[in-house]
Design a protein around this nucleic acid. Structure first.
Lengths: 119, 119
DNA sequence: ACCAGTACCGACTATTTTGTAAGTATCAAA
DNA sequence: TTTGATACTTACAAAATAGTCGGTACTGGT
C-alpha cells in the first residue's frame, strides 16, 4: 500500500520507460510495427529474454500492442498504441538533445570508464 | 574497450540521467541553487549516500556545479551548469507529458503492484 | 569536556535488474 | 525422424543499484 506518488512528471515517465531497453524498443516501434525477431536484431545486444520481458511489460502498461497472427509457426507483431505514440512525441525533443550532444556525452562516459578501470 | 555507441539520442540522455534520483535532483536544481541539506529534504526518501553519490556523478559529468564556500562547518551549494540547463529545457515536454498523464500512469503502476503481490 | 551540526566517506548488506542456458510447442522441409 | 524456424518460458547466476550504519573533521554552544 505505498501509494504511487510522483514528485514530478519525469518520475511518471520513468515508471513507464524505466528499463535498460525500453526506450530503444519504443524508439524502433515508432517507425511502425515489427515482429519479435526483427526487434531482436534492431535492438542490438538485447537478450531474447529481456526483449520479451520488456515487451510484455510495455504491453501490460498499454504502451505497446501485441498482435498475434495465431499461426504455426508463431507470427507476432508489436506496435505502439495511441498512448505509446503520445509518449514518443514528447520524447522526441529529448532524443534530439541526445543526438545533438552525443559526442559530448560519449566523451563524458568515456571519461567515467577510465576512472573506474585504472589498470 | 567497448566503445561508447548510442543507437539513439535517448540512450545518450539516459547515460547522463540514469539513476533513481538524478532526474529529481536536476528537476529541483532547475529552480536555482540549493545546499545539500535542502536537497535531502526536497528529494523525498533519498538516502544521504545516494544523494551525494548522484550529485558527485552529475558534477563529474558537467551537469551540476558544486560550490564549496570553504567554511567550517562546511557549506556547499549545487546548481546547474549551462550544459545541465540545456538538458532540463528539452526534458520539459517529457515532464509535461508525465504530469498530464500522471493519474493514468499511477493507475498502471498500481495495477502492476497487484499483479506481483498476489497474496 | 561533550554534544550537535555541517558535508562527506567507506565497509558491508539487501534488493533489483539483467544475463545465460536450457527447454516448451508446433509444423514444414529434408 | 531429425532439423530448423517461430515466440516464449523457466531456473539459475551475475551484475548493477540502493540502503544501513558507523566514522571523519571542524567548530560553536552548553
Amino acid at each position: 500500500m505505498p501509494e504511487t506518488r510522483f514528485q514530478c512528471g519525469m518520475e511518471a515517465v520513468l515508471a513507464i520507460l524505466g528499463g535498460k531497453w525500453k526506450p530503444l524498443i519504443v524508439y524502433h516501434l515508432a517507425c511502425g510495427p515489427h515482429r519479435t525477431g526483427q526487434l531482436r536484431k534492431l535492438v542490438t545486444n538485447v537478450s531474447e529474454k529481456m526483449l520479451i520481458q520488456h515487451l510484455r511489460e510495455l504491453t501490460d502498461d498499454g504502451v505497446v500492442r501485441r498482435i498475434d497472427f495465431q499461426t504455426v509457426p508463431p507470427h507476432v507483431e508489436y506496435d505502439l498504441t495511441e498512448f505509446g505514440q503520445s509518449l514518443t512525441k514528447t520524447l522526441a525533443p529529448m532524443c534530439e538533445w541526445g543526438t545533438r550532444h552525443m559526442p559530448e556525452v560519449a566523451a563524458i562516459v568515456q571519461n567515467r570508464k577510465r576512472a573506474s578501470v585504472p589498470a
